[in-house]
């Protein structure tokens, strides 16, 4: 009996490792696809894969609430908004000839590599007080309780921030009349047409 349960815990430990590497092997290529895909609409949809993979990582870390929130907010909500913005700003669905600016590729790759190595060294050099006790199964209850007691003030601030962001986004995206260059051009054309018509009438 003891041997069996030991074996089961060992298997689950290795299972977690393999699942982690599986998810990582799926997520990282998706993330590169988001950056390097020539078709930007497809890049927007690849974002769903990245966020789904990250939500799977949250499930592996036993953060069920966050995994579901991640799926709902990121993989559905933000991706939808991003894809709609892509369609609004690129109405003819053109493919980029080069998705990245050529002059910045090499410096960015160098900086990225150095940053990654530096972050990794920093991670390794730190002794994280590793706590091997298992996460309590009712961690959603703990989250809800502390959000409404200890973190009540930040919670309220978050709601105010969301409200302000909502109003601000509507204000920014609203179509202001007589403000943009295209509108002014349109108006000038219209006035020109009207004046030409008037001249025509006068001639007649």
């Amino acid at each position: 009996m003891g041997d069996l349960s030991e074996l089961a815990t060992l298997a689950s430990k290795h299972m977690e490792t393999w699942l982690f590497y599986l998810v990582a092997l799926i997520t990282v290529p998706f993330a590169f696809g988001v950056l390097l895909d020539r078709n930007i609409i497809r890049a927007g949809f690849l974002l769903i894969g990245v966020f789904g993979g990250i939500s799977a990582l949250f499930l592996l870390l036993q953060a069920q609430f966050l995994a579901m929130a991640q799926l709902m907010i990121y993989a559905v909500g933000i991706t939808l908004v991003v894809v709609i913005a892509l369609m609004l700003t690129n109405p003819r669905m053109e493919e980029d000839k080069s998705p990245s600016i050529p002059a910045q590729k090499a410096p960015a790759a160098l900086v990225g590599t150095l940053l990654f190595i530096a972050l990794y060294m920093a991670i390794l050099s730190e002794g994280w007080g590793n706590n091997s006790e298992a996460l309590s199964p009712d961690n959603i209850t703990i989250i809800g309780y502390s959000l409404l007691t200890h973190y009540a003030l930040p919670f309220e601030f978050a709601s105010i921030l969301l409200l302000i962001a909502l109003v601000g986004a509507v204000m920014l995206a609203k179509h202001d009349h007589f403000n943009s260059k295209a509108d002014i051009d349109e108006i000038e054309e219209e006035t020109k047409e009207i004046s030409e018509r008037n001249e025509h009438v006068v001639k007649v």
């Binding site: 950056l35 927007g44 700003t89 080069s98 960015a108």
Partner: peptide, 15 residues
């Protein structure tokens, strides 16, 4: 790091 690379090199503002 992938995000940093994409942020500095992308041509499209949405990207």
């Amino acid at each position: 790091t992938i995000g940093v690379y994409g942020m500095t090199t992308s041509r499209n503002a949405v990207r």
